[in-house]
């Protein structure tokens, strides 16, 4: 099973329906004590960009953001720290992702099921990326400059 880095897990997991993630998080944390290190909360984040002309920082606007942090303690007393920040107005989703993050990081029981979800999510995102890249590849343009050749401009046509 090919694993991706922890920093890339949110993108892979959020390719799945929220209900799937919440159900798995509930199931995997049922044998654990769950302590909040940061209560699930929905709010906004501010997007700070570097402008393309002078590389000055500015704020483009806001985005929905939900956050949560947990400490998981399993039946053997092992502890795991999990946390999530996700671009969504859904605190319950952040809670589920934080639990999955902790279970996966500490390899608690059932972590392989999260890895399977991640692997499937990576495939779903790759398909999405491919559709976008097809939009680029299929519209690549090479305009010809006007010249004495009256057929100029059709050079890139099949």
């Amino acid at each position: 099973m090919a694993m991706i880095e922890r920093k890339d897990c949110i993108r892979a997991l959020t390719a799945h329906p929220t209900t799937t993630l919440a159900a798995l998080a509930d199931e995997l944390s049922s044998g654990c004590e769950v302590r909040w290190t940061r209560l699930p909360q929905a709010g906004l984040g501010l997007l700070r960009l570097s402008d393309g002309a002078f590389h000055e920082p500015y704020y483009l606007g806001e985005f929905p953001l939900s956050v949560c942090g947990v400490e998981l303690i399993d039946g053997e007393g092992r502890r795991a720290a999990g946390a999530a920040q996700v671009m969504a107005d859904d605190a319950a989703l952040a809670r589920a992702l934080a639990i999955l993050d902790g279970v996966l990081a500490a390899r608690f029981a059932g972590w392989e099921r999260i890895a399977v979800l991640i692997e499937a999510g990576v495939s779903l995102r790759a398909e999405e990326d491919r559709r976008r890249r097809i939009m680029l590849a299929s519209t690549r343009v090479d305009f010809a400059l006007l010249s004495s050749d009256e057929n100029a401009g059709d050079a890139d046509e099949d």
Binding site: Q41, G43, L44, G45, L46, Q85
Partner: peptide
């Protein structure tokens, strides 16, 4: 909505 953070 509360402002939670800003990106780098």
């Amino acid at each position: 909505m509360p402002r939670l953070t800003a990106t780098p």
